[in-house]
């Protein structure tokens, strides 16, 4: 696996911010009452994460280490405010649906975490790719949660009514935790199974020269 593929795989699966690192849970649990909210929030974070990683990577040699955190926060806050203005101007429905969680992206652990852990130490393109992949991983997770909760809690998918009945529990906060827990369990089981399979394959490949076929 080359460098870029590894960055992408890490952001999407290996270090998925929602299912693996469990970061940004406030927005995850509060906003996933519908699939569209999940997609909207995920894409918003993706844009901000990609831009913040790019800018921070560009400035990584200029910003002194002692003031890096306040500098990152100022940059992220500026980007969030701009995205907020854009959404308010052009996609007001999504802006209203996100409510207080939109400005709270400023303090989202995922964005500050990637800035500190990756963008401040890596070149621009790598950082931008890391932001994009991590953001898409977050979007994927929020969309899955949103689809499950909207389908069960409202009987609809992306606003289109599918079932004539619904289970209100899944729209509640308790339902969010329940679905989140189940999703983490399934995600971990799949990742572990794949990882085990890969380890076995590696082990077999490694052992092959010692047990030549006859």
């Amino acid at each position: 696996m080359n460098k870029y593929a590894k960055i992408t795989f890490n952001g999407l699966i290996q270090n998925n911010p929602t299912f693996k690192l469990m970061l940004g849970m406030c927005a995850t649990l509060a906003l996933t009452t519908s699939a569209m909210n999940g997609v909207g929030m995920g894409l918003t974070v993706t844009i901000i994460l990609t831009l913040s990683n790019t800018i921070i990577s560009l400035l990584r040699k200029v910003i002194p280490g002692s003031v890096r955190i306040p500098a990152f926060v100022v940059i992220i806050a500026t980007l969030v405010t701009i995205v907020r203005m854009v959404l308010d101007k052009f996609i007001p429905d999504l802006y209203e649906a996100m409510g207080v969680f939109l400005p709270l992206i400023v303090v989202n652990c995922i964005i500050l975490g990637r800035a500190e852990a990756f963008a401040s130490k890596n070149p621009v393109f790598d950082s931008a790719l890391d932001g994009l992949a991590t953001g898409l991983g977050f979007t994927l997770a929020l969309t899955i949660l949103g689809i499950i909760r909207e389908f069960l809690g409202k009987g609809s998918l992306f606003g289109i009514q599918i079932m004539p009945f619904s289970i209100g529990f899944f729209s509640s906060a308790a339902g969010a935790f329940f679905v989140y827990g189940i999703c983490i369990a399934i995600f971990t089981a799949i990742v572990n199974a794949v990882s085990l399979k890969q380890k076995r394959r590696k082990a077999l490949n490694f052992a092959a020269p010692f047990f030549p076929r006859r």
Binding site: L59, V62, I63, P70, A71
Partner: peptide
């Protein structure tokens, strides 16, 4: 310290 202050100030002003 001064360099840090100046850089932070410039970032804030630009933002």
């Amino acid at each position: 310290a001064f360099k840090s202050l100046v850089v932070l100030l410039i970032i804030v002003i630009l933002c």
